[in-house]
């Protein structure tokens, strides 16, 4: 049973730069929560505060009810996996893993048993005597994960662990990490700026911007029902069309669609996969700019009459040519005013 509670945490760096601003989050036992956001959103600073490498300016953090806000990293029940692996290159794999256990004065037999067990868990059985420099990037990241897991931490912290790996390896490792996390049922906080990683791994996603929470929800809800235009634009591909609503009609440069909200400015959000196109010869709402065939589907880049660019996903890209006029028929829309949702259909 390991529960992490973060309550009204702030971190102000000299400048002053408010890196994390009054942030609160509860991570349940065995849950994997992803902190997702662009560079500078404060997600790594928050993770480093949980790990003890940064001191919060204000707020409280507890693990299983115990206040850890000012506990030094070496005394926290957390294990962190760093972006650059941070393996000790003067030690072999076994020594890297055994180092923390030796500091805890664990008996040599028990060290060997636990190191062998965790190497088996990450699929590196028999790699104990290898030098760190002899391992590939993926293997090094597995050793870094094993080094944290061997100490059986209450909370596992992952700081963009796959950022330095290629796409193929990244996909394979994130599945493996998710499997291990679920098998061990270890409470995990995972920082990433890759939405694919967050959507495929997390039980819940925290979307962060400028040190604040934009939305905390399950991945499917964050994707389907983004609460702010920022989340809508950050998660997946989203067409965000700024226009005006008058008498229940949203209009923007020749394109209009019913929108039952009060008059005023609005941002219409439509996913490319929820936008149907029809080729027309007159009264077009937009013009095809470019068609990209991805094999399984196509992506049509459109220009509205005022040159606003939007995208539509189509199953038959060969039906579209650059310069063709089209009409738009969204199947699912959301509308925002300011930072709030005003309509969803």
């Amino acid at each position: 049973m390991s529960v992490l509670k973060i309550k009204e945490i702030s971190k102000i760096f000299a400048g002053p730069v408010r890196a994390v601003d009054n942030f609160s989050l509860d991570v349940a036992d065995g849950e994997l929560v992803c902190l997702l956001g662009p560079s500078g959103s404060g997600k790594s600073t928050l993770l480093r505060m949980v790990g003890g490498f940064e001191t919060p300016t204000s707020g409280v953090m507890t693990i299983d009810g115990e206040d850890i806000t000012h506990v030094p990293p070496e005394k926290r029940p957390t294990g962190m996996v760093f972006q650059s692996h941070a393996l000790w290159t003067h030690m072999n794999v076994f020594k890297n893993l055994a180092f923390g256990l030796k500091l805890r004065k664990v008996a040599p037999d028990e060290i060997k048993r636990r190191v062998d067990g965790v190497l088996d868990l990450v699929g590196l059985n028999g790699y104990g005597t290898r030098h760190v420099a002899q391992l590939s990037g993926g293997q090094q990241q597995r050793v870094a994960l094993a080094r944290s897991l061997v100490l059986e931490p209450k909370i596992l912290l992952l700081d963009e662990p796959f950022a330095s790996l290629d796409q193929h390896l990244r996909e394979r490792l994130r599945e493996e990490v998710r499997d291990i996390q679920q098998r061990l049922k270890i409470t995990t906080l995972f920082v990433t700026h890759g939405q694919d990683e967050a959507l495929s791994m997390a039980d819940r996603i925290v979307v962060m911007r400028d040190g604040k929470t934009e939305q905390i929800d399950r991945p499917d809800i964050v994707y389907r029902e983004p609460q702010t235009p920022f989340v809508a634009g950050f998660i997946g591909t989203m067409n965000l069309i700024e226009g005006t609503v008058s008498n229940g009609i949203f209009s923007k440069a020749g394109y209009s669609t019913p929108l039952p909200v009060s008059d005023g400015p609005a941002i219409l959000a439509v996913r490319p996969e929820a936008l149907d196109l029809s080729v027309v010869t007159e009264n077009s709402q937009g013009k095809v700019h470019r068609v990209t065939d991805y094999g399984s589907h196509g992506l049509v880049d459109l220009e509205l009459l005022d040159s606003t660019r939007i995208k539509a996903m189509v199953s038959h890209p060969d039906l579209f040519r650059a310069g063709q006029g089209v009409t738009l028929a969204p199947r699912a829309i959301a509308a925002y005013r300011g930072n709030a949702v005003i309509h969803r259909a």
Binding site: F82, S84, W88, G100, R104, A144
Partner: peptide, 26 residues
């Protein structure tokens, strides 16, 4: 690297242990 030192502290090494086991060998 700072991260190599942070990783050592993360697994429980105090300042002297970091100096002796991580910094001096490097």
């Amino acid at each position: 690297s700072n991260q190599a030192i942070e990783a050592a502290r993360d697994v429980g090494a105090g300042k002297l242990a970091v100096l002796w086991h991580i910094i001096l060998p490097r």
